[in-house]
Write a protein that binds this DNA or RNA. Structure first.
Lengths: 182, 182
DNA sequence: CGTGCTTGAGACGTTTACGTCTCACCCGGG
DNA sequence: CCCGGGTGAGACGTAAACGTCTCAAGCACG
């Protein structure tokens, strides 16, 4: 009977990503709980947003750890990263689109994530796996965009859910152009 | 002295994309006008959002027309589309992230845009230019994500503004993997 | 130089969502 | 069986943003 905090946060992320102005009442209903209960677990809207941020960053860090970005080729590491990101794609989409979190000062946790991902792209460039005419900063942002798009595309039923990894990995690595090799 | 309606809308799009919960007062200040003046031009928040939607869709349609998606190779048409999208990238980012516009019924204008872009990808697949293991729907969503990411990356100063076209075109067409050919 | 239109600033009442609280209910454990 | 913690529904006062209005000031144009 006790409310599953993670479940509430995930449904809130899904709702708030689509409709950032959603009411606390709407957030509660989307989670299938009463507004009073929502307030019992999260002191207010700010606390809810903060909890979303924390959970998202925690899962993102965990995904980065699990992906072991320093091992194997950068290509393989990138594949692992995308695979690990799948379960938290909805939270990531929220984090990425809700830049409002960092209106004053840049967020520390987010900076760390940024740096780790950019380092992966840089490693791939130095090893000769990745092209060097696109900067690591843009590649990082592009990855964010693709993850968000994929999350929405699946959420809205435009693409199949089990294509998540393939969709992102293939497009990011090989692009849309038909390759002669392979 | 008269307020430039387009200018107001563009600054509103930039602000609301970053912070969807921004006050009318904040929107006005961001545009450099008073709140009263903002209300004179847009009856209310809903009207402002609607105006943003209309302007965005109008510019998007114009970009699609100007890109002449049916001519030349699909690759060249895609390049033109991205080039034409640059001036309105901020508005597009708003439209893409503010799915709340279409909570009830799917938006007609947006469906039309979707169909035109998906058709371009389909044409490229049929002509053998594009790979066929990624569906047109996903490719369309992926393009949206890259456009949004590029707009933000430039707005936040992480990447240079005049790289817009190159960033998107190259990543979307060729991917991040270093190609042996060319 | 004067008239008229548009603006910015601010006051005002209204609406809306917020956050707190109460109370009856239900489910699970002792 | 009963008891207690957690819940949903709803009432309530509060805070914030909304939308309207007034008024003085500025610029444009005749």
């Amino acid at each position: 009977m006790t409310v599953d905090r993670d479940r509430v946060l995930r449904s809130a992320a899904a709702l708030l990503t689509r409709k950032a102005t959603a009411t606390m009442d709407e957030v509660a209903k989307a989670a299938g709980i009463g507004r009073a209960t929502l307030h019992r677990h999260f002191a207010g809207r700010d606390a809810l947003i903060k909890a979303l941020e924390e959970l998202g960053l925690r899962e993102l860090d965990a995904a980065l750890d699990a992906a072991r970005l320093d091992e194997d080729t950068a290509t393989e590491a990138l594949r692992r990263l995308i695979a690990e990101s799948e379960s938290a794609a909805g939270l990531f989409a929220f984090l990425i689109t809700e830049n409002q979190l960092f209106e004053d000062q840049q967020n520390e946790g987010w900076d760390r994530v940024d740096a780790r991902i950019a380092a992966l792209f840089r490693r791939g460039q130095e090893s000769g796996e990745f092209r060097i005419d696109l900067g690591p900063a843009w590649l990082t942002d592009a990855l964010y965009g693709l993850v968000t798009s994929a999350a929405w595309s699946i959420q809205d039923g435009r693409t199949a859910g089990n294509d998540y990894q393939h969709m992102i990995v293939e497009l990011l690595l090989g692009g849309v152009r038909r390759s002669v090799e392979k």
